[in-house]
Design a binder for these strands. Structure first.
Lengths: 160, 160
DNA sequence: GTAGTTGCAAATTGTTTGCAAGCCT
DNA sequence: AGGCTTGCAAACAATTTGCAACTAC
């Protein structure tokens, strides 16, 4: 699991998961609705295990999480993120009023803070022009040791 | 495996792997020397499988690669990189005359080009100051479709 | 000599698939 | 009703560990 510090873009208005699914040509089942709501409410990318842990209460199997996330990624509604700790995570694509952002991760307690600014965008267009690449996208993660974990007997410390 | 375009920083002078190991308090065994030389010569991060493939000829087992890379990462001599395709890769940390760089990856043919400039560095110190993080490092990858792959019958195209 | 390191193989963990039963439209 | 979706369990793949033999110092 992942500790989260809510960024400015945490939003109180959940999307209507059922409508969203139908709009995208997907059947609205109990488990899928739970998964979509979870992704929509999370300000950080989640692993399949994270998602399963939260929706198993609804009787939603791991295989369902796996297959449904695969479908969402094929349709490019969800994006796969290679996390610095080697896990593969998944986040819903930017919706209205959300722009994409990056993450600051504590190497000790694994806390994740979203970073709103994106310094890379201008650089990206420059590279596109100089090297002739099309459809550029990027992935940026910063990691370091957070203030709490810099104190000797930090209580937040976790396993590698 | 990974296709590589050599960047300006490809270097002909290999480091003395044995000396480097001893300087860092590590025993210089046959397998370790081969692994260090390989990492030192590569201009892109490698997976454990990539490394094993190259050093198995020296009779070096996968478990040795796994454990030795873990040791190097604990000592922060090697850095782990979450690659865009979900694989975990490893690269030796910047040495004299090498500054760290980032990568531009073609989503079609998987070609990797190093990028020398780093736009993130100034931003990094700003974040360190604002949020009190120590020992910041970052990982940035750009991906897109290279000029060759934008042509209809691109011969360089590869499997996803 | 001795502590650290290795190869081998097994254990563990994570990912993916097949299939009969169930649910959405 | 009918096809898409699910849960379960098994298959497959990747990562990690135990241990006796070996090697560097």
């Amino acid at each position: 699991m992942v500790q989260v510090i809510m960024g400015k873009h945490a939003h109180s208005h959940a999307i209507d998961a059922t409508a969203w699914l139908r709009q995208n040509g997907l059947r609205a089942t109990h488990g899928r609705i739970a998964i979509v709501q979870l992704l929509d409410n999370s300000s950080v990318p989640l692993t399949l295990a994270d998602i399963h842990e939260k929706v198993r209460a609804e009787g939603c199997d791991f295989a369902t999480v796996f297959r449904f996330i695969s479908i969402l990624e094929e349709k490019e509604l969800v994006q796969r993120v290679a996390w610095i700790d080697g896990t593969t995570r998944h986040e819903i694509r930017a919706r209205d009023g959300h722009h994409h952002h990056h993450y600051l991760i504590c190497r000790t307690c694994h806390k994740v803070e979203p970073i709103d600014e994106c310094v890379v965008e201008r650089f990206e267009s420059q590279i596109a022009k100089e090297r002739g690449y099309a459809g550029l996208s990027h992935s940026l993660q910063l990691s370091g040791v957070c203030p709490a974990c810099q104190k000797p007997a930090a209580k937040t410390r976790k396993k590698p």
